[in-house]
Design a protein around this nucleic acid. Structure first.
Length: 325
DNA sequence: GTTCTAGAAC
DNA sequence: GTTCTAGAAC
C-alpha cells in the first residue's frame, strides 16, 4: 500500500468553469471508460485518505483555506449540539467547491456534481457523489432559481417523489456520469496499486444518515478499518434492499407507475440492516465482524492471485473476475 | 453517522 | 479472563 494516497490537486481537478466532462452522455456503460474522461496527472490518485490522511504532506494541510477550516468545524458531527445532518448539504451548496474544499475532501467537481471522499470509508475505495445546488448552478448570478426545490434533493425518496420527471432524470444522469468518471479513476488506481481491477458498486442508501442525496461509489472488497458493525456491512449489500444500485433506480424512473410502492419499501428498509451477517461474495454465514474481516481478506488475496495469473497467461484481465468464485 | 461501554458470548 | 456486540449517548 505505502505511498498510495495523493489527492488530486485543485489545479488538476475538473474545472468548475469547464463543461461537465460527461454530462452530455446518458446512462450507459459505453460512456464510462472512453475518451470523454478528463485527463488528469499521473500523480493523482483515487485512494481513500482514511489510513493515509495523517501522512499527507504538511504543505497540503497548511494550504487549506480559513474558509475550509471554518467549514470543517461547523460541519463536524454534534459540534452544534446534535447530529449535523447538513454536512453534505454544506458541500453541495458551495459556489466554488474547488477553492473551498481541500483536496483530501474533494476528488473532482463539475458544474452539476461533486465527488468527495467518504469520511469513514467502508472499503478500500469509497466516494460520495452529490448534486450541487442550485441544480444546475445558474449562469446568471442574479438568478437564484433551481430547476428543483432544495428539499427534492434531501434523499432518494424525495427525489423519486418530485413531480418534475425531467428534472429528477437530469439529476440522476449527472450523478451517474460523475460516478462513471470516479469509477474509472478508482480502477486506474487499482491497476497501479494491485495490478488488476475489481468490481465497484454504485448505489443509494434507502435511509441515509445525512441530508442531501448522495450516490455511493464503493469497491466491493469491503475491506476497511471503518467497517465495524453488521449494519455497516448490510448497508452496502447490493442484494439486500437497503443499498439500491443506481441501475435499479434508473429502472424505477423508466417505469414510474410503482413509485409510491418503491418509496414505501425504502421507508421500511431499516429492518434489513439486522439481517444475519453473511459474506456478500459467497453467502457464507459469518458469526462476527472480526471473522468477516479475515474472510474478506482471504477473498481479496485469492481473487488477486487468480486475476494476476489470468493476466500473466492472456495479457489482459478477464472482464468480470468477481464471477470467478 | 461515530464512540463508549455494559453485559452477553465465548 | 477476553472478545465482541448492540444500544445509549453524543
Amino acid at each position: 500500500m505505502g505511498n498510495c494516497f495523493a489527492p488530486i490537486s485543485p489545479d488538476s481537478a475538473d474545472s468548475e468553469d469547464e463543461p461537465p466532462s460527461a454530462a452530455a452522455a446518458g446512462p450507459g456503460r459505453s460512456t464510462g471508460r472512453t475518451s470523454e474522461r478528463q485527463p488528469r496527472p499521473s500523480s493523482s490518485s483515487a485512494r481513500n485518505p482514511s489510513q493515509d490522511r495523517n501522512r499527507s504532506h504538511p504543505s497540503r494541510r497548511q494550504s487549506t483555506s480559513k474558509r475550509i477550516r471554518k467549514h470543517s468545524r461547523s460541519s463536524s458531527l454534534f459540534s452544534m449540539g446534535g447530529p449535523s445532518l447538513d454536512a453534505l448539504r454544506n458541500y453541495a451548496t458551495l459556489s466554488h467547491p474547488q477553492s473551498s474544499l481541500s483536496p483530501s475532501k474533494l476528488l473532482i467537481s463539475n458544474k452539476t456534481t461533486l465527488a468527495i471522499f467518504d469520511n469513514y470509508p467502508k472499503a478500500k475505495y469509497h466516494f460520495l457523489i452529490l448534486p450541487r445546488y442550485p441544480f444546475p448552478p445558474q449562469s446568471n448570478p442574479d438568478s437564484k432559481n433551481s430547476i428543483l426545490p432544495l428539499n427534492a434533493l434531501d434523499d432518494l425518496k424525495s427525489l423519486l417523489l418530485c413531480d418534475d420527471r425531467e428534472a429528477r432524470e437530469e439529476v440522476m444522469r449527472a450523478l451517474y456520469n460523475t460516478a462513471l468518471e470516479v469509477e474509472e479513476m478508482i480502477k486506474d488506481e487499482m491497476l497501479k496499486t494491485e495490478g488488476y481491477e475489481w468490481k465497484v458498486d454504485m448505489g443509494f442508501h434507502a435511509i441515509p444518515s445525512m441530508k442531501h442525496i448522495h450516490l455511493h461509489v464503493i469497491s466491493d472488497d469491503r475491506i476497511s478499518p471503518s467497517l465495524k458493525t453488521k449494519k455497516h456491512h448490510n448497508s452496502f449489500r447490493p442484494d439486500l434492499g437497503f443499498f439500491i444500485p443506481i441501475m435499479e433506480v434508473q429502472r424505477w424512473l423508466d417505469d414510474d407507475s410503482n413509485i409510491q410502492e418503491r418509496v414505501a419499501a425504502l421507508s421500511d428498509a431499516e429492518r434489513l440492516l439486522n439481517t444475519p451477517l453473511t459474506c456478500h461474495k459467497c453467502d457464507e454465514f459469518i458469526t462476527n465482524i472480526p471473522k468477516l474481516k479475515n474472510h474478506l481478506e482471504k477473498h481479496f488475496v485469492d481473487e488477486r492471485a487468480s486475476a494476476l495469473r489470468y493476466i500473466a497467461r492472456h495479457g489482459t484481465q478477464r472482464s468480470s473476475d468477481e464471477d470467478m468464485f
